[in-house]
């Protein structure tokens, strides 16, 4: 029993630390997760982390949360996964809610307003870049293009046509929930053999 509690405390500590020191999205948690794998080889291995990246790409949710849940589960079952996930998001909850209050209080300050104009432009740019990243994986076929040098090989034409139709449909049917488009995309993916 005391071993159970000790392990829970260790899990809480390690994932709280990961949540506190990870900045940025996507794979920013990766170095911390690999570090834990090295120090606690009986918890999970680097191979598990690689498998998790693949699973995270095909299930909803952030890699950090997915990994904490999976690792916690493989260490101590349900209670391990609950502890790991809760302590991973705890520092975020505390810090972001403090910053949110600060933002609300100083929102009318002209300097804060001026800074936000810059931030919004940069935010739009970073989301665009992320969109380009997904587009590259989903629609372009870079390996085939590199191998042949033919521009025709660069585009997966079925995927490109589907992308264009989807963008047009989203602009036209604004009331439709995004998940409807994703469901149609999944079905098309199966039937077109993408």
């Amino acid at each position: 029993m005391s071993g159970f509690i000790t392990t829970l405390v260790l899990i809480a500590y390690e994932f709280f630390k990961t949540g506190l020191f990870t900045i940025g999205g996507g794979l920013a948690t990766l170095p911390f997760l690999l570090d834990i794998a090295e120090r606690y080889p009986h918890w999970y291995t680097t191979q598990t982390v690689m498998d998790m990246i693949a699973i995270s790409e095909s299930t909803p949710g952030p890699l950090g949360v997915n990994m904490a849940t999976y690792a916690g589960y493989s260490i101590l079952g349900f209670w391990g996964s609950l502890t790991a996930t809760f302590f991973l998001i705890l520092p975020t909850l505390i810090i972001a809610s403090i910053v949110a209050r600060f933002l609300a209080r100083f929102n009318d300050n002209p300097t804060v307003q001026a800074a936000l104009v810059g931030l919004r432009a940069a935010g739009t740019g970073m989301i665009t870049a992320a969109g380009i990243g997904v587009f590259r994986v989903a629609v372009l076929n870079l390996p085939a293009f590199m191998a042949s040098g033919q521009v025709g090989d660069l585009f997966n034409l079925t995927a490109l046509a589907m992308f264009i139709v989807f963008v047009a449909a989203m602009a036209k049917f604004k009331k439709v929930h995004p998940v409807v488009f994703l469901a149609i995309a999944a079905v098309l993916g199966i039937f077109l053999g993408l």
Binding site: S58, T128, A186, V187, L188, G189, G193, L194
Partner: peptide, 26 residues
């Protein structure tokens, strides 16, 4: 196959959302 389709949908969704954001931010 399903996820290959979903990725295209996600790319289109992000593109759509950038168009909407840019109206106020740019």
């Amino acid at each position: 196959h399903a996820f290959a389709g979903i990725r295209i949908g996600v790319a289109a969704l992000i593109f759509h959302s950038v168009l909407r954001l840019s109206k106020s931010s740019l």
